[in-house]
Amino acid sequence: MTRTLGSRILVALPYLWLLVLFLAPFLIVLKISLSDLAVSRPPYTPHLDLTAGWAGIKAFFAALDFENYTFLAEDSLYINAYLSSLKIAGISTLITLLIGYSIAYALARAPRRWRPTLVMLVILPFWTSFLIRVYAWIGILKTEGLLNQALLSIGLIAEPLTIMNTNTAVYIGIVYSYLPFMILPIYATLEKMDESLLEAAADLGSSRLAAFFLVTLPLSMPGIVAGCFLVFIPAIGEFVIPDLLGGSNTLMIGKTLWVEFFNNRDWPLASAVAILLLLLLIVPIVLFQRQQMKQEIGT
């Protein structure tokens, strides 16, 4: 009963945060996605006219429609861009998982006194701008770049490889950029794993390989799932990497969104793409969380 104003504000703060920084922008984008493209400032219509009172509000809502979504559904570009993003994000996540797991495993098995240094090395690239690191890959991958020069000089290839401006370059860029997000959560689960569990598995008749699949892998699952989400979700919406490293054939929803907004200045359509992208990302997240909850309640 005697709650102070301060403590009330403290409790309300996270909600306020969500309201101001997530819900409000979301509703604005949702509203724009239901609007029509127009030559005006900002470039869509209708705008809410509060001075007209109730009639203004009614007219405002009457003018909203799902035309942009119909347009998206009718044009295979957007679904293809989304599917292509799913594919690129999925394959990148898988490659990142394989590489990231190996590195995390090696880190967790490294002598304890080396670990902080090794973890530092994993985080180190973050100290440089992401853009600069992606630009560096251009220097490595381009036709006359470092990679081709190296391969040519050791005679492994006769003709320079075309990696730059292809999907391969996009995969390399995504895997490279997001690798730490995969390594760190997996490392965290592996590092706190009791090593006596592996001895117990061996004692109970498991080979090292069986112990890995029966004990280590299931126990690192939370880290794997977290890592995969941390890579997969931003990779789906990735724009910078496909724009800088990919070719004109690289179709990704983030790039499509950017083009709709900046090149076409089509705010309503761009907003519709953004809303769909959000929904399509929320679905797997919600499914995942529900499954986690079920697991916890079920046992």
């Binding site: 493209l37 570009l77 004109s248 054939n249 499509t256 083009v259 076409n264 089509d266 359509l269």
Partner: peptide, 17 residues
């Protein structure tokens, strides 16, 4: 006009991708 512009940019996307 806006609606034509949408068709033009769509055509251009097709040309590019």
């Amino acid at each position: 006009p806006p609606k034509v512009n949408r068709k033009v940019t769509r055509l251009w996307t097709k040309v590019k991708t």
